[in-house]
Design a protein around this nucleic acid. Sequence first.
DNA 1: TTGAGATTTCACTAATTACAGAAAGAAAAG
DNA 2: CTTTTCTTTCTGTAATTAGTGAAATCTCAA
Lengths: 171, 171
Amino acid sequence: MDALVTKMVLHWGEMGARWGINRTAAQIHALLHFTGRAWPADEICTELGVARSHVSNSLKELQSWGVVHPLHIMGERREHFQSIKGIWELFELLLDERKRREVDPTLKALREATAAMGGEQEVDPQFKTAVAEMLSFFEMMDAWYGDIRRMPLETRVKLVKSGAKLARWLR
Amino acid sequence: MDALVTKMVLHWGEMGARWGINRTAAQIHALLHFTGRAWPADEICTELGVARSHVSNSLKELQSWGVVHPLHIMGERREHFQSIKGIWELFELLLDERKRREVDPTLKALREATAAMGGEQEVDPQFKTAVAEMLSFFEMMDAWYGDIRRMPLETRVKLVKSGAKLARWLR
DNA sequence: TTGAGATTTCACTAATTACAGAAAGAAAAG
DNA sequence: CTTTTCTTTCTGTAATTAGTGAAATCTCAA
């Protein structure tokens, strides 16, 4: 494999590890993404030097995130796998999933705590305000994420590109 | 400890674990944050039922993120620790640190790959475009983050609150 | 200066997570 | 239907990370 590709694969692996994706799963994704083509599982495992079974499981994980898709190639017995093309789509999938796993449960927990405090009199006021502040912050962010997520892609690109202009408009 | 606080502490611990912060460190932060007061290390460790040494290390980690500060209390021998108050400030610290650890090195890697490809003729064109696209995406996001980070807090709050309006303005 | 309280370091154990390899399970070709 | 090729499941091991407890270090009051 090209040394440059290897470098990106290794880097992607390290970064993936910090995102809670296991290292080799992230490496596999990098391999698929940066080579831009579909790979059969066994070639992935010779390329990265990991067990066939591990590649299989990692591919399943990547598919569960929605960032890798199977692709049937004509006249080929083996299943091939490719990374989704669009970078925006890629990071949308990652963010959506993280929101679902991290933000949504936290919102739920904060709402439950708020509800539970409603009746009780003997709740520490410090706790009460801390929860209320955190909840309103999360709700604000949640709504914002929804707003942005609902924009068409081009609008979102504009938004990101017009950062400084935006600041002026807001004043 | 109040059952409600316990619940938040446990939840925060789970979420922290997914952010690469170790579970008990996140629990400690939740304890400090949601009780809103300064705690001495030994009380934290009886409260959470973990070893004194572990609390010490976790507090150090939290301080390295900047989300917990030591506080000297008059007439008290023991050091006390408290969470930073502002929620915006809290998440800014977390995001800044994650950017520094994850985005910046990735930008560096992408730039190095781009530079290395400059001279070479025999680079897979697929790889070339994949790197170029990824780099421009990261640069765009990096610039955007900088723009937002530079806004005064109130502007940022406005930005988040005016999500839908914003979409209309962009069109 | 000594010693008690408080904190950190360090060496070890427990628990989790990553990964390997064999074996079982499908799907397609003959 | 049977053999071949490919994929997944399952069980065990390696490696990493979390957490413990004792010993060493530090700090301050007496």
